[in-house]
Write a protein that binds this DNA or RNA. Structure first.
Length: 259
DNA sequence: ATGACAATCAGAGATTGA
C-alpha cells in the first residue's frame, strides 16, 4: 500500500517543522505540495533530501509554486498544464510514480479567481478548461492518474458552513462549478467522498475572523482520480490536527492510499 | 463594504491569498 499526501503549505520554508511532523506521524511515501512560495533556487532541498525524499519542483518567486516529494523513484511527465504558452504561473507538475504497479499523480494549484470582476476570474476558468482537456486525454488513453491539490473549488453544499454565501465568489460561482462538474462528469471521482459522506469536513480555515475556532472552514483540497486509479484507492482522510499547530498553514494535509 | 491574518520582498507598505 502506498500513501500519498497533498498539502498546501503556504510557504515551504516556514512549514518545514510541520513537514517533519507529517513524516513522523503520517509517514507518507509521496507528498504533493502547493504554494511553496519559493524559487527552485531557494527551495530547501537539503533538509527534505535528509528526510529521505526525491524532489521535483516547479518554483516561482513569492507566489504559487508546487513540488512533489517521493521516497519511491519518480519520473517527470510535465511541469506545466498544456494549452497556454503564455501562462507563467507555477501551478502544475505531473510525475510517474514507479511503484511495483506504476501510476501517475499531478499536483495542482488551481487559481483562486477572486475578485470575479477582474481578469483573475477568466484566468481561473481558462485554467479549469485546460485541466478538463488534459484530464479527458488521460481518460481516453485509459491512464491511471490522480490529480490532487488545492482546487479552490467548494464542490457542494456540505463543503462550506453556508454555501449560499459563496454563490458570487470564484470558489463556488456557477461558472466555476459548471466546469468542475464537467471535469467530474468526464469520469473522474472525488476520492474523499468515496470514503466519507459526512458534511462539514474541511481542509481549509481562513486565518482571520476566528474561522478555526468556530470551525468555519471549506473543503477545497481534493483528489480526482481516473477510473483505473479509482479502482485501486483504498482510503482517503483529512489530517485536521495540523491546523491547530503553532504557526500553521491555513490548509491541512489530505491523503489517499493506493494498492 | 471593509478588514480580520499570514506570507513575500524588502527593508515600508503593497500585493496576494480565499
Amino acid at each position: 500500500m502506498t500513501k500519498i499526501v497533498s498539502w498546501n503549505v503556504n510557504s515551504i520554508r516556514v512549514r518545514l517543522p510541520h513537514l517533519v511532523q507529517l513524516k513522523e506521524t503520517i509517514d507518507p511515501d509521496v507528498i504533493m505540495l502547493q504554494e511553496t512560495k519559493s524559487t527552485d533556487e531557494n527551495f530547501p532541498f537539503d533538509d527534505i533530501k535528509e528526510m529521505g525524499f526525491e524532489i521535483i519542483t516547479k518554483g516561482q518567486k513569492s507566489y504559487n509554486g508546487v513540488a512533489i516529494l517521493s521516497k519511491i523513484p519518480m519520473e517527470l511527465i510535465a511541469n506545466e498544464l498544456p494549452g497556454n504558452a503564455k501562462d507563467e504561473q507555477a501551478r502544475f507538475i505531473e510525475v510517474k510514480i514507479k511503484d511495483s504497479d506504476p501510476f501517475n499523480i499531478a499536483t495542482i494549484y488551481l487559481p483562486n479567481g477572486n475578485p470575479v470582476d477582474t481578469e483573475k476570474f477568466p484566468y481561473k476558468l481558462d485554467w479549469m478548461q485546460r485541466l478538463k482537456d488534459y484530464a479527458k486525454k488521460k481518460i481516453d488513453n485509459q491512464e491511471t492518474v490522480i490529480f490532487g491539490g488545492d482546487y479552490n473549488i467548494i464542490p457542494n453544499r456540505g463543503d462550506a458552513v453556508n454555501i449560499e454565501k459563496w454563490k458570487n465568489d470564484a470558489l463556488h460561482h456557477p461558472d466555476s462549478i459548471k466546469i468542475f462538474r464537467e471535469i467530474i462528469n468526464l469520469g473522474l471521482t472525488d476520492v474523499f467522498r468515496v470514503f466519507n459522506s459526512k458534511e462539514f469536513e474541511f481542509t481549509y480555515w481562513d486565518y482571520s475572523r476566528g474561522s478555526w475556532e468556530k470551525d468555519n472552514g471549506l473543503r477545497i483540497d481534493h483528489f480526482l482520480s481516473t477510473p483505473s486509479a479509482t479502482d485501486r484507492i483504498t482510503d482517503c482522510q483529512i489530517e485536521k490536527q495540523f491546523r491547530g499547530l503553532e504557526r500553521p498553514s491555513d490548509h491541512v494535509p489530505i491523503w489517499f492510499e493506493i494498492k
